[in-house]
Write a protein that binds this DNA or RNA. Structure first.
Length: 564
RNA sequence: CGGAACGUAGCGCAGCCCGGUAGCGCACUUGCUUGGGGUGCAAGGGGUCGCGGGUUCAAAUCCCGCCGUUCCGACCA
């Protein structure tokens, strides 16, 4: 492509609305423009990078036997009502004029097709995928392309006759994902994840560590333990059980509200303080006991409760139910609440907690003796520096971007939409499904987050819109023009995608700056200096390293560089 | 959906407090110049000041409403 004919609107100034590097650079390098919040126009250069990412994904999906579909973005609303997902908050965008919705994902449509055509265990397994635009009713789009209202996803769906089959399909996807992201030159890691409201038994996320990521993950500094903070655990000791339990005593604790104040006031370690956190679960009052200042993890809470809606109880609501304020609430003689506790408190005694009477606490609480508990669960959010549950080394907590997510769905959708097959014994059974997504824009954005410097993008070969950027330093020099055209033609004829900066009205410095901003892996610089010796210069964008190469050797040199 | 900020030429911004002919840099057009890291000089073109209403002789500027965008939070299959 000749730059003089190309539509590549680069910008020197940083757009005011872009706050993270990938967003700024995607705008500055002319990859895209924002149409409205969360919706982007992909310009030719940006779309080329996206197509490269999609092709890598496609090849890896085909390699595990995936079959590509093209599914409708417009879906009948009724299909989503059947699975109960029509009313999921902030999920579906709908069409005003018709009872149609814009599909945010395609489990429903896949299940609909499968329900018609999957009849026998002999028809299974299947891996069906699509690489298409999806829509989501994001309350707050942000971080450029990382969280939009419209985006391109590779989604695949596995259909299996057995749990073992699902495990195999899932493992195939995990391997395909590793290959995909590795080929894209992205440094990633895999974490255990919560399956959330999607339902199902297992799930993992493919993550890229990034300060601007909106996910939080725990990573072991020594072993390979990695988990989304939603499910991460640490090897923190339980609260010890003292020998014998004294009688519960009421203690006057005027104006003591927080755990820190209480520990200070009573001169006791925080481990002996059972903090009461009050919620409503599907409307019913719920008290959760945590150790000291341990933070309740809502994702774990929901999982422990088997789903449903949870929300912190308001101060007024709490006062009405208990007669006391938050800070004085406790599990002993608390009427009308379901009570659960963090695992660290399992069987503990000698605890201090609220008396359900302002300015009073109870001491010597024995959870076995004094409280009717509905169970102990891991409910706390881990903190950086705590011990890895696998190896005991320190955990760190990082922000990350979710590139891909793989799910063992089970039979939630096949049951809702009646997708059944006959097994060997002739019995009807629901098809067992898996669901696996990759965000295409996120591949590109993460590649830029990891591949950029002060001058611009540094593309990996796999995603670079062009492999080589040919720069004619001085278009007024006949020799330069001739040599640059020759090398551009030779590269193109050799099947190497080249962008040729043949602009006549642009100074050399401007061309160099643009080339670094656009970030193609290699630059071939054609200038009078080198030509005197019959040489051209090859610059590696990543390292800045420059080598002079004889004119006739440029194509072969570039070819070997691209093979590295 | 709660909190905050912003909206003036394609982009980045000043002007608004204190009402009185709309400005700067980049980009763009033309000519000359320069030619290995966003050349230099000169002459130009381009704006319903987000939209609607109000106050006033007069509104980018003051008041009210709306819309849009961004950030923090909530949310995030």
């Amino acid at each position: 492509m000749r730059f003089s004919k190309a539509f590549i609107p680069t910008q020197k100034e940083i757009p005011a609305d872009a706050t993270i590097p990938s967003h700024q650079l995607m705008l500055r390098a002319g990859l895209m423009r924002q149409l409205t919040a969360g919706v982007y126009v992909y310009l030719p250069l940006g779309y080329k990078a996206m197509l490269k990412a999609m092709e890598v994904v496609r090849e890896e999906m085909n390699a595990i036997g995936g079959q590509e579909f093209h599914l409708p973005a417009l879906n009948p609303e009724s299909l989503w009502i059947q699975t109960g997902r029509r009313d999921v908050p902030n999920f579906i965008l709908s069409i005003k004029e018709r009872d149609l919705v814009l599909a945010p994902t395609h489990e429903e449509v896949i299940a609909w097709i499968a329900s018609m055509h999957i009849q026998s265990y002999k028809d299974l397994p299947q891996i069906w995928y699509q690489i298409q635009t999806k829509f989501r009713n994001e309350p707050r789009p942000r971080s450029g392309v990382l969280r939009g209202r419209q985006f391109i996803m590779k989604d695949s769906y596995s259909l299996d006759a057995s749990r073992e089959g699902l495990d195999k399909s899932y493992d195939l996807h995990a391997e395909a994902y590793r290959n995909t992201f590795t080929r894209c030159g992205i440094r990633f890691f895999v974490v255990g994840a919560s399956s959330g409201a999607m339902g199902g038994t297992g799930s993992q996320e493919f993550m890229v560590e990034a300060p601007h990521g909106e996910d939080t993950v725990a990573l072991c500094t020594q072993c390979d333990y990695a988990a989304n903070l939603e499910i991460a655990s640490s090897a923190l000791p339980k609260v010890t059980r003292n020998e014998g339990s004294s009688n519960v005593e009421e203690v006057h604790t005027p104006n003591v509200r927080t755990i820190d104040q209480l520990a200070e006031f009573l001169k006791v370690p925080r481990e002996r303080l059972a903090k009461s956190v009050v919620y409503r679960h599907n409307g019913s009052p719920l008290l959760i006991l945590m150790v000291g200042n341990d933070q309740l993890n809502e994702s774990k809470l929901i999982a422990a409760l088997g789903g449903g809606e949870v929300s912190p109880m308001s101060a007024d609501d709490l006062k009405g139910l208990t007669g006391a304020d938050g800070g004085s609430i406790g599990p002993v003689n608390l009427k009308g609440f379901k009570i659960i506790a963090d695992k660290r408190l399992e069987g503990a005694n000698g605890l201090i907690s609220g008396a359900n009477r302002n300015d009073y606490h109870l001491s010597n609480i024995d959870l076995q003796r004094d409280v009717t508990l509905d169970g102990y669960y891991d409910l706390r959010t881990i903190e950086p520096g705590e011990a890895c549950p696998k190896c005991g080394a320190a955990l760190k907590v990082s922000n990350a971007i979710e590139l891909g997510h793989i799910f063992k769905l089970g039979t939630k959708y096949s049951e809702a939409l009646n997708v059944t097959f006959l097994d060997e014994g002739g019995a009807g059974k629901p098809v067992i499904m898996g669901s696996y997504g990759i965000g295409i824009e996120r591949i590109v954005a993460c590649a830029i987050e990891q591949g950029h410097d002060a001058n611009g993008i540094v593309w990996d070969k796999a995603l670079a819109p062009y492999s080589v950027h040919v720069i004619a330093v001085n278009m007024n020099s006949k020799d330069v023009v001739l040599a640059a055209n020759q090398v551009y033609r030779s590269l193109t004829e050799a099947g190497i995608e080249a962008l040729f900066d043949d602009r006549g009205n642009v100074s050399p410095g401007f061309k160099f700056k643009d080339a670094d901003l656009l970030g193609m892996p290699f630059q071939v610089i054609v200038g009078e200096k080198g030509l005197k010796n019959g040489q051209l210069e090859i610059k590696r964008r990543k390292t800045g390293e420059r080598t002079m190469v004889a004119k006739d050797d440029v194509v072969s040199t570039v070819q070997s560089l691209l093979r590295e």
